[in-house]
């Protein structure tokens, strides 16, 4: 066996304290240099906070190595410009801006031609709705905007936080297809509760519990081990490509929220 290639992203002992509350107590994870790495765990395990910590959107300590380079002291915008596409949990779509403006904002001037061909091929709807205010889109269409923004630039890492949450099964498939396609070219860190999507996309997985890493390994191994899946993810059966079910209940858990002003550490 040849040695595994070095991971693209290595997170060591990531800790986040917000308002005096310890939310992450030392998360370790690696994002492989190719394919999709799933970040799993029950609700409230700290998946979103981990992603936000990696990006510097919340104050954090520890080590975040991107292609071997320490980034934990960098500002969010500087880190992102090194080649990260981020689709946040609440989609982060600017409601008052048009679809075209949302995409234009994600362009990085001076970093090559934006890949509108790819975006419009994957999501033809976005071209038709270019002038529509993003706030009037359906949840699925907003998610397409969020994913499209990560595909526009030649990123070296895409991070998507529960991109299928609350979407209709048909849209879940469409979003999963887009991510699958993206992952052929760029490593993806995917936070996902829909185990059918995980099974389809993820090669590796990291499971968080109570703000710590509880498990790392091949995704299929975990999904095949019903007992471990129940213990780590809180589900009885991992399902076998069955209908999209989230372990936390019906997928309609979050309706399209207006883009709320989130906290920030960058300002």
């Amino acid at each position: 066996m040849s040695p595994a290639p070095a991971p693209l992203l290595t997170v060591r002992d990531l800790r986040v304290v917000i308002g005096g509350r310890h939310i992450l107590h030392g998360v370790d994870l690696e994002v492989a240099a190719s394919g999709t790495t799933a970040l799993l765990g029950r609700n409230g395990a700290g998946k979103t906070t981990t992603v936000r910590g990696i990006l510097g959107l919340v104050p954090r300590t520890g080590s975040v190595l991107l292609a071997g380079e320490e980034t934990v002291r960098q500002t969010t915008h500087a880190l992102v410009r090194r080649g990260i596409g981020y689709a946040p949990e609440d989609r982060g779509v600017f409601a008052a801006l048009s679809v075209a403006e949302n995409l234009r904002l994600a362009e990085r001037p001076g970093a090559g031609e934006p890949a509108y061909d790819l975006v419009h091929e994957l999501f033809p709807e976005l071209r038709r709705r270019a002038r529509q205010a993003a706030g009037t889109l359906s949840g699925g269409q907003q998610q397409m905007v969020a994913i499209a923004r990560t595909l526009l630039n030649g990123n070296r890492l895409i991070i998507a936080d529960e991109p299928t949450k609350g979407l209709a099964p048909k849209v879940v498939t469409e979003v999963a297809q887009a991510l699958e396609r993206a992952a052929e070219a760029v490593p993806v860190l995917l936070v996902e509760q829909n185990l059918a999507v995980v099974r389809r996309l993820a090669r590796h997985c990291v499971v968080l519990a109570d703000g710590r890493t509880a498990h790392q390994g091949p995704a299929l191994d975990l999904l095949a081990d019903a007992e471990a899946a129940r213990r780590l993810l809180g589900v009885g059966s991992a399902g076998h490509g069955g209908p999209a079910r989230t372990p936390a209940g019906p997928p309609a858990r979050t309706a399209a929220r207006p883009a709320a002003r989130t906290t920030e550490a960058d300002a």
Partner: peptide, 8 residues
């Protein structure tokens, strides 16, 4: 609308 998302 959302400063943090702009930095992201």
């Amino acid at each position: 609308e959302d400063r943090a998302m702009v930095t992201a």
